[in-house]
Write a protein that binds this DNA or RNA. Structure first.
Length: 419
RNA sequence: GGAGGAGUGGCUGAGUUGGUUGAAGGCGCCGCUCUCGAAAAGCGGUAAGGGUGCAAGCUCUUCGUGGGUUCAAAUCCCACCUCCUCCGCCA
């Protein structure tokens, strides 16, 4: 959420950002409603002021019949103005909540993910000198991955990990948690469900158009799509000491996504699934720190995938693919032989104060004034696309899969290969 | 799930026969005095958010959340949330 005062004073800039983000939101309508709302408030405040004064004057002893009569009139008038029935307040809030965050000046302007900008290719894809398979086939041959049974038991988009892949998944998570903990991130295992307040606060509204969130029938609670939700919510409604910032968490949770209507080759196998595990970085910082923190997160992600040895590249996300909360975003994409293309594996965003405003997370700045913190989030590893990329890139001619060196020490018996 | 108790400012904690209580006291924080300096002590200040205004100021809202009763609600009523105690159930 943006500050209405900021929008009022920077309408042009806000409109520009919305346009570049390809988000339809009527700022002029919002400003008009804002004005109407303030005007109505003024009238109500005036009447309330009279009511308060009257109550004060009647503080000791019984109020006179005349005072009571005047009070009744005021009460009626205020009541009328308050309900109004014009729905200004509702429409105002609805539009305000859809106004997206601004964009970083370096974010390339573009309509969608096709216009994201490749910054660098860190590790180039290797050529196979044998007929390689995709991860679904590898997984079935090695009896480590079962989509067929999962489809029967839970539905399409679910899967079983078995044998070596179970260990590989745990090794990945263990590796990532340890690396992040070594860098001062506090390990934290979060709930997998969260209230709608928390969902809204982080910008994942189950009632939004995205149709991405599983809700629990009859309850104000839903399955999280990422630990970003529960981590952001962790400090909701708090005032943080400046000297405690930045606060860095490495969270760990299951993630659930409906991915409605996502079928086809693009989403085959583990690429797009309803449930996976994720190790997620989340940072609360001061506004001055956030750009450095963003760089740090990206550096950590690059280090992780360099160490694992996956071919990958870094993208600077264009405005149209940024989403509402993000001010700037980088994705890592790994080479996926199945797609014969790059595929997103991580994403790290600087949301500036956009989430913090809704979650109401503040700190006291140098002048002793309360100010919203900045929030940042980034993927360390997940248990869907990373295993996918490892299976496909580390497969051998004999059908086995090498375990990346960096992960071997987390495998039982220092397992070096799944066969 | 059932019964009972509770939810107040950055923290702690008074206040519930409705009316100078936006809220005592303490802690913390800020300023000053004292000191070479610090500590201690003393004095003073210290909630957040909105509207309006160049500003000073004026004003509204907020005592878990949302409704309600009343001329007037932290105080009364209802619903919900959370925490504590006891019972039941259970990995």
């Amino acid at each position: 959420m943006l500050d209405i005062k900021f929008i009022r004073e920077n309408a042009k800039q806000v409109k520009e950002a919305a346009k570049n983000k390809n988000i339809k939101v009527d700022i002029d309508e919002l400003l008009k409603l804002d004005e109407e709302r303030r005007e109505a408030r003024g009238k109500i405040d005036e009447l309330r002021s009279q009511r308060n004064e009257l109550a004060q004057s009647a503080k000791n002893g019984k109020p006179s019949a005349e005072q009571i009569a005047k009070g009744k009139d005021l009460k009626e008038e205020i009541g009328k103005l308050e309900d109004g029935g014009d729905g200004i307040e509702e429409r105002f809030k609805e539009i305000l909540s859809r106004v997206p965050n601004l964009c970083h000046p370096n974010s390339p302007i573009g309509k969608d993910d096709s216009e994201n900008k490749e910054i660098e290719i860190i590790v180039k894809p290797a050529e196979f000198d044998f007929k390689h398979k995709d991860h679904v086939e590898i997984g079935e041959k090695l009896d480590i991955l079962d989509f067929e049974t999962a489809a029967k038991v839970s539905g399409s988009g679910f899967y079983y990990f078995k044998n070596g892949l179970v260990w590989l998944d745990l090794a990945l998570q263990r590796y990532a948690l340890e690396k992040l903990a070594d860098r001062g991130f506090i390990p934290i295992a979060t709930p997998d469900l969260a209230r709608s307040f928390t969902m809204d606060g982080t910008g994942y509204n189950p009632r939004g158009n995205e149709d991405q969130i599983y809700e629990i029938k009859g309850e104000d609670i839903a399955l999280i799509a990422t630990a970003e939700i529960t981590l952001g919510g962790y400090l909701a409604n708090r005032i943080i000491k400046k000297e405690d910032l930045p606060i860095k968490y490495v969270g760990f949770s299951h993630c659930f996504r409906k991915e409605a209507g996502a079928y086809g080759k693009e989403s085959r196998g583990l690429y797009r699934v309803h449930q996976f595990n994720k190790v997620e970085m989340f940072i609360f910082s001061t506004p001055e720190q956030s750009e450095d923190m963003h760089r740090e997160m990206l550096a950590i992600e690059k280090e992780i995938y360099k160490e694992i040895g996956l071919p990958f590249r870094v993208l600077e996300i264009c405005t149209g693919d940024l989403g509402a909360p993000a001010y700037r975003k980088y994705d890592l994409e790994a080479w996926m032989p199945m797609k014969n293309d790059w595929g997103e594996i991580t994403s790290c965003s600087n949301c500036t104060d956009y989430q913090a405003r809704r979650l109401n997370i503040k700190y006291k700045n140098k002048e002793g004034k309360l100010e919203y913190v900045h929030t940042l989030n980034g993927t360390a590893v997940n248990s869907s696309r990373i295993p996918l990329a490892i299976l496909e890139n580390f497969q051998q001619a004999d059908g086995s899969v090498k375990i990346p060196k960096a992960l071997q020490k987390y495998m039982p018996g220092n397992m070096r290969v799944i066969k």
